[in-house]
Amino acid sequence: MDEIFGIPAPLLFGQLLLGLINGAFYAMLSLGLAVIFGLLNIINFTHGAQFMMGAFVAWMLLAWAGVGYWGALILAPLIVGATGVVIERLMISRLYKLDHLYGLLLTFGIGLIVEGVFRNYFGSSGLPYRIPDALQGAWDLGFMFLPIYRGWVVVFSLVICLATWLVIEKTRLGAYLRAATENAPLVQAFGVNVPRMITLTYGAGVALAALAGVLAAPIYSVNPQMGTNLIIIVFAVVVIGGMGSILGSVLTGFGLGVVEGMTKVFWPEASSTVIFVIMAIVLLTRPAGLFGRA
């Protein structure tokens, strides 16, 4: 059997693929964060809780309303996105004139409260959510056994990332968004309703987090802490990619997923730390991040 660095080649390819799959989650979550930060200048620390809410709403839809996975894929982001709109209108919008730090503290606090409320009602050990029947089973790729659902996650999140990038970079709406980021009063003077655009952008960023949550529900344990575990890594991804850079966060998300996957083979104990080591190195050498503008 062929070996690379003492590891059988098939195992290594398998790990590469798994890294990409985890990277898909990082990419989708950091994408939402980057969109929100780019336009609102808010570091959305509620993102992990909103990811968790996506998974829980999918469970609620199934358990209480009989709506399955495919319905949840559309409804859960809409429902959670709507809560995001409410939060933005009621609270976050009051902080735009203040320092970043206030937005960070507010969203961090909201995240803790949401997590606490879910923990109170659903406990901490989690709820069952099955893989939809159409995506059950696995493909035998020769070097590994790939569950169809994981393949679906990678493809679907790539499509979402690409679509988001296209909307922001290639459409008129995206042009308004980018212009408002640069100079909001001027864009408003042209007759664009900037506050409404900001609100909807926050809602869209939150919906992206919820969508990732629905994707995660069948493979990770659906519990109130599920976002906390992931979100710290995602923040590191955003910092490494460059705050506010859409393409940067997507590429870094996938890239770091692979790096983490490889670490799980060669030095498993360090797999939760490796991303932060990279973050430290990037901050020392390129403080604006790999794809950020200084």
Binding site: P8, Q15, K264
Partner: peptide, 21 residues
């Protein structure tokens, strides 16, 4: 055996694959 970081590991597929191989 493989030692997984605690807490903070959510995806175990990589470790399961190592176990399988």
């Amino acid at each position: 055996q493989v030692r997984t970081p605690f807490p903070g590991t959510t995806d175990f597929s990589s470790f399961l694959l190592q176990a399988q191989s």
